[in-house]
Simulated assay, not measured.
Amino acid sequence: MTYTGDVTPGGPPAVRELDRLTVTKLSVGPMDNNAYLLRCHATGEQALIDAANEAPRLLELIGDGGLATVVTTHRHMDHWVALEEVVAKTGARALVHADDAEGLPIAAEALREGDTVAVGDCELEVIHLRGHTPGSIALLYRDPAGTPHLFTGDSLFPGGVGNTDQDPERFGQLIDDVEARLFDRLPDETWFYPGHGKDSTLGAERPAVPQWRARGW
């Protein structure tokens, strides 16, 4: 089946096979959070982006292949409800940006802008996107055989940037970072995977960025 990224809470995962990496997207309740399991083809090593909720379903998805790493995109609780249980059951390393580390229920290793996270022979680049939270991050996989793939947490969605609670300073920081660190750096074909809801591409969203800035959210 062609990957669309359309998933629903309680529904089946969506699986995307890249040349070197498998991306499996699962929606967990009650807030329709997306969790992403990445598996390196060469080594079988797996990493999870956002152990959001429903630990039993996430552990079933992980299966017998083990889990090396859990990366939390930001400190909001709906993105880490299952983190403690998943780490306890798998022994995975927990990673989060240093500026959001205090918001997690367990100790986690600190990430910073420009760091990389290995998934077997594949690599994710950490991009710091300030505004939704102080330590929000996106994770970039540059597929050597295809287009870039970007996991944006709650910083970028189809139709706009993440919630900044109508704070002009936070919104300005987020829209600046999203524009400079994502849209100005990456091509239109970059596929992005948000923390909730449907996927999109930077090319589909790029024409609306000036409108987002003008409206202030």
Rank of each mutant, 00 (worst) to 15 (best):
D115V: 08
T116G: 10
T133S: 15
A118P: 00
G120N: 04
E113L: 01
L111S: 14
P148T: 04
H128E: 01
R142C: 00
A145R: 14
R112C: 06
V126W: 15
A107W: 01
T147I: 02
D115E: 08
T147A: 03
I137W: 08
V126E: 11
E109T: 04
P134G: 06
H149V: 02
L139R: 04
T116S: 14
C122A: 15
I127Y: 15
G114E: 03
G131D: 05
I127K: 13
G114Q: 08
L150W: 12
E125G: 13
H132S: 11
A118Y: 01
I106K: 11
A145Q: 09
R142F: 00
E109M: 07
T116L: 07
Y141E: 04
T147H: 00
I106V: 13
V126D: 13
C122I: 07
I106H: 12
D143G: 11
R130G: 04
V117Q: 00
T116R: 15
G146V: 07
L111Q: 12
A110G: 07
D121G: 09
G120S: 06
V117D: 01
R112E: 08
R112V: 07
H149F: 03
T133L: 14
D115I: 05
L124V: 04
A110C: 10
G146P: 10
L129E: 08
G135K: 07
V126H: 14
D143C: 08
E123Q: 12
